Simulated assay, not measured.
Amino acid sequence: MTHDDRVTLPSFPTLASLPAADHPTLLAPPVAAALAGWAGASEVAVVEIDPDLADTAAMSEAFDIPLTASGNCVVVSGARAGEERIAACVVRADTRADVNTLVRKMLDVRKCSFLPMERAVAETGMEHGGITPVGLPEGWRVLVHEALLEEPVVVLGSGVRRSKLLVPGRILADLPGAEVVADLGR
């Protein structure tokens, strides 16, 4: 990688980023595959980080990134008439997904709970602490907190703990299967 390959986003001068689609080794395989087929991929960057900084609070502190510019992705499930319904909820990091009320109603289930981490990791092909809405299994709903669309750049997982994606907030609505939800984060 040469210095010319790097891109520094004005919103986060502490992060030197690279075009994500050109650096698939910094991504989980499903994320790299999804970017290869997504029109918005040309605007997505990746930044390599110390895996110990993968958790949102540690990353925000280390790189002086406001929590409002970070998105957390949680995977939830519920069942109705024997049919399991799964959704990934992407919320601004200074909020929590309204799983027990809003998401439960959107999935039309009696009870909604977090997918066990082992299962989420196995089914997404992503690492614990790196799950992202980019490259999720087909058929999963992707609920996106509307507030993230207002951010110039959103920091998301890359599928692995050793890097992060930098995505213009406005294109999160264009993710395959994305549903923008106003009050998803509380």
Results as ranks from 00 to 15, higher is better:
Met1Thr: 13
His3Thr: 13
Asp4Tyr: 01
Thr8Glu: 09
Thr8Tyr: 11
Phe12Ser: 12
Pro13Arg: 03
Pro13Met: 06
Leu15Val: 04
Ser17Lys: 02
Ser17Gly: 05
Leu18Asp: 07
Ala20Lys: 14
Ala21Ile: 09
Asp22Lys: 02
His23Phe: 13
His23Gly: 07
Pro29Tyr: 08
Ala34Gln: 03
Leu35Gln: 06
Ala36Glu: 06
Ala36Asp: 13
Gly37Gln: 09
Ala39Met: 08
Ala41Lys: 05
Ser42Cys: 04
Glu43Arg: 08
Glu43Ser: 14
Val46Ser: 04
Glu48Ile: 04
Asp50Gly: 05
Pro51Met: 08
Asp55Tyr: 06
Thr56His: 12
Ala57Glu: 05
Ala58Ile: 14
Glu61Ala: 09
Ala62Cys: 15
Phe63Ala: 12
Asp64Glu: 04
Ile65Tyr: 01
Pro66Arg: 13
Leu67Gln: 09
Thr68Gln: 15
Thr68Asn: 08
Gly71Ile: 02
Cys73Gln: 03
Cys73Thr: 15
Val74Asn: 10
Ser77Asp: 07
Gly78Glu: 11
Gly78Pro: 01
Ala79Arg: 06
Arg80Val: 13
Glu83Tyr: 04
Ile86Glu: 15
Ile86Pro: 04
Cys89Thr: 00
Cys89Arg: 02
Cys89Gln: 00
Val90Cys: 08
Val91Cys: 11
Ala93Leu: 09
Ala93Phe: 14
Asp94Gln: 12
Arg96Ser: 14
Ala97Thr: 06
Asp98Met: 05
Asn100Asp: 15
Asn100Ser: 05
Thr101Arg: 06
Leu102Asn: 15
Val103Gln: 10
Arg104Asn: 12
Lys105His: 03
Lys105Cys: 12
Asp108Ala: 14
Val109Trp: 08
Lys111Ser: 11
Ser113Asp: 14
Ser113Phe: 13
Phe114Glu: 15
Phe114Gln: 11
Leu115Asp: 04
Met117Leu: 03
Arg119Ile: 13
Ala120Glu: 04
Val121Met: 04
Val121Asp: 15
Ala122Asn: 02
Thr124Pro: 01
Met126Phe: 05
Met126Tyr: 01
Glu127Trp: 11
His128Pro: 03
Gly130Val: 02
Thr132Met: 11
Thr132Pro: 09
Pro133Phe: 14
Leu136Ile: 13
Pro137Cys: 02
Pro137Gly: 02
Glu138Ala: 10
Arg141Pro: 10
Arg141Ser: 14
Arg141Lys: 08
Leu143Gln: 06
Glu146Gly: 00
Ala147Trp: 01
Leu148Arg: 10
Leu148Ser: 13
Leu149Lys: 00
Glu151Val: 13
Pro152Asp: 13
Pro152Phe: 14
Val153Thr: 15
Val153Phe: 10
Val154Trp: 07
Gly157Leu: 02
Gly157Val: 00
Ser158Trp: 04
Gly159Asp: 14
Gly159Gln: 07
Gly159Thr: 04
Ser163Cys: 07
Lys164Gln: 07
Leu165Phe: 10
Leu166His: 02
Val167Tyr: 07
Pro168Thr: 08
Pro168Asp: 12
Pro168Cys: 07
Gly169Glu: 14
Gly169His: 04
Leu172Ile: 12
Leu172Ala: 01
Ala173Gly: 15
Ala173Cys: 15
Asp174His: 13
Leu175Glu: 07
Pro176Phe: 03
Gly177Lys: 04
Glu179Arg: 12
Glu179Lys: 07
Glu179Phe: 08
Val180Asn: 11
Val181Lys: 01
Ala182Met: 08
Ala182Asp: 09
Asp183Ile: 09
Gly185Cys: 14
Gly185His: 03
